[in-house]
Design a binder for these strands. Structure first.
Lengths: 209, 209
DNA sequence: AAGTTTTTGTCAAAATTTTAACTTACAATA
DNA sequence: TATTGTAAGTTAAAATTTTGACAAAAACTT
């Protein structure tokens, strides 16, 4: 089977489709057309149809898309039809916020450990997870089938802790540090750069004035 | 003066250029060519030159770009050459993390208040800011020249608090809630959807397997 | 001081992404 | 069961974005 690469623009939109479908599902809507969806989401119907057809024909002419089916198909495409083990490196405010937010667990991203290098924090609890030392991390990753490593340490330390995690077998890096992380070919990184985000907002504000 | 719209792809890259230039500046580098920068940043030199030339010719043939000058030019473009007043709505973990992170203040985004609707939190402190009630927010916005409103409340409440802030005069919304916020023409929104981000990571992980 | 190298700014080509239009298939209805 | 309307899937066109190439200008070199 031929395997065309899907553009990242498409992947950027999929989680949003998923969110809308989840909402429709909760409110009991059984079917939806690309046109209706496009009106709600402020994108073109054409784009929705084309995005979805990258992965297969999930709809039916004269009917539309079955909300429930499409919801699950997108979940499968995104790889969120099963659980993920997540650890957090950095028990600062942001790391703690991620642990305490129930949102991720609800979507199958289970935060199973949090690490820090501050010895004073050792054994203290965040939510109901005990903080461990980074020295224990490699061992933990090897033994616990960790999929995703969230990095919330200061930028100076980010590449160092990423390397430890990757050497221990981690393959997905969720990077919150204000720096780029260099990784080998088979490791994927998703960046969340809040400072860049607020700068973009600042730009947009300036343009409106 | 003609005012061409700059594509959002360009704006997405500017903060990253800014970050790299800041690092170069700190390490005492005085000048840099688009080629050198492109090697460090893993983008094409052509793209850097074209991006910058949307705003003016900041470089010089045979020399390159003066790091310090370009750093400040980009700051001006992004509107971060002056301070911004920021308030946070929602004193949950994420709201508290934003307050406690010194990173934003360092870049001129001063968090001057945090609001919540939980009466039990009234008067309690996050960092050195007292939590106020949302009922006081409109008045605060009117009196304190608030530029940016960060929304970290649950999604069900997001549009409601956004409306209060906008009606009181806020023009920039930094939205962390897992929903879209509808705003009038003259208001700008920058979204930070963490759950969408981790789904994209999940997709990339699946593709590598 | 002349020649050589570097490097920008710009133009045009290439690639990608988005939108629009068309064709086909199914669903609803009478 | 035949007919009409709806809406997906697909193809083509348009728009946008990225890359490559080159002339002009400045900085080095000898």
């Amino acid at each position: 089977m031929e395997h065309r690469t899907i553009s990242s623009a498409v992947i950027r939109r999929l989680p949003r489709y998923y969110r809308y479908l989840g909402e429709l599902r909760e409110s009991g809507v059984k079917r939806i057309s690309s046109r209706e969806l496009s009106e709600r989401m402020k994108v073109t119907a054409s784009q929705i149809r084309q995005d979805l057809n990258n992965f297969g024909g999930f709809g039916q002419q004269g009917y539309g898309y079955n909300v429930d089916t499409l919801f699950h198909e997108i979940a499968a495409i995104l790889g969120i039809d099963h659980e993920h083990n997540v650890i957090i490196i950095g028990a600062g405010n942001l790391g703690q916020a991620l642990v305490n937010s129930g949102d991720f667990a609800k979507r199958g991203f289970n935060i199973i450990a949090i690490f820090d290098n501050n010895a004073e924090l050792a054994g203290k609890k965040v939510g109901n997870i005990k903080i461990s030392m980074i020295s224990q991390m490699a061992d933990f990753i090897k033994k616990n089938n960790v999929d995703i490593v969230a990095i919330t340490v200061p930028r100076q330390a980010a590449n160092e802790v990423a390397k430890i995690a990757i050497d221990a077998g981690a393959r997905g890096i969720w990077n919150f540090a204000h720096t780029d992380i260099s990784v080998p070919e088979d490791v994927v990184v998703e960046n969340v750069h809040l400072s860049e985000s607020i700068m973009r907002l600042s730009y947009k504000l300036k343009e409106k004035k």
